[in-house]
Amino acid sequence: MFNIAQNIGSLIIDSVEVIGKMIRFSLISIIGILSRPFYTNIFINQCINIGFFSLPVVGMTTLFAGMVLALQSYAGINPNLASTTIPNLIVLAITRELAPVLGGLMVAGRIGASIAAEIGTMRVTEQIEALETLSTDPIKYLVIPRILAGIITLPILVLIGDIIGILGGYIVSVSKLGLNPASYLNNTIEALSLIGVISGLTKASVFGFITTIMGCYQGYNSSGGAEGVGKATTNAVVWSSIMILIANYIITEMFVGV
């Protein structure tokens, strides 16, 4: 009994310690953004890596999400209302939820893991220490360009994902379900709301921050050779995915205003 209480106690203390370290790491990184030097070349490379190379994954995800959504909503509604309801539903679901959340989770899997593995390997092979001995702040050199790239490129990815997802819904609705293309497009444009798109892009920006900070934090604090890097990579993906889902609820509540 005493052992169980002790284990629970140490688990709570460890969790609080990790959360505290993570908050401290995030604050140091955010403060670091405001001061020089800024490594522009690394930032541009990271934008290409996080943004451009994630485009196929996010594009495929949102395309099929839009297509499936069209089929599912058709199956669940009155066929006479399909031409108005389906575009409405697709626009709402894609712009506010599916593109940012699915896109965020896909990027968390791809980028969170790669950042944690890269920085983790640098940590266990003393490359981060080498940076410090060469008068280079590893937070500014490794962490800040990745965080900024995540915050900036994820909304762009999600915006493209919105378009592809809506297009996916259009393709299925018109070619498979036989809806009128012109009326479908009109209804889609009417259904688009600025606040809906902005809420999706805000989410994407926050998810970009979560994914990159988790990848950087886990990699930066990894230890124990290859096994430690593997653990850091897994933790980065798992924790950023969980935090994306939690943040999604919080941001949705803020925008819905319930």
Partner: peptide, 11 residues
């Protein structure tokens, strides 16, 4: 300057 045990070259 520092020469690390395994070089610590940026790979």
């Amino acid at each position: 300057g520092m020469l690390f045990q395994n070089g610590a070259l940026f790979d």
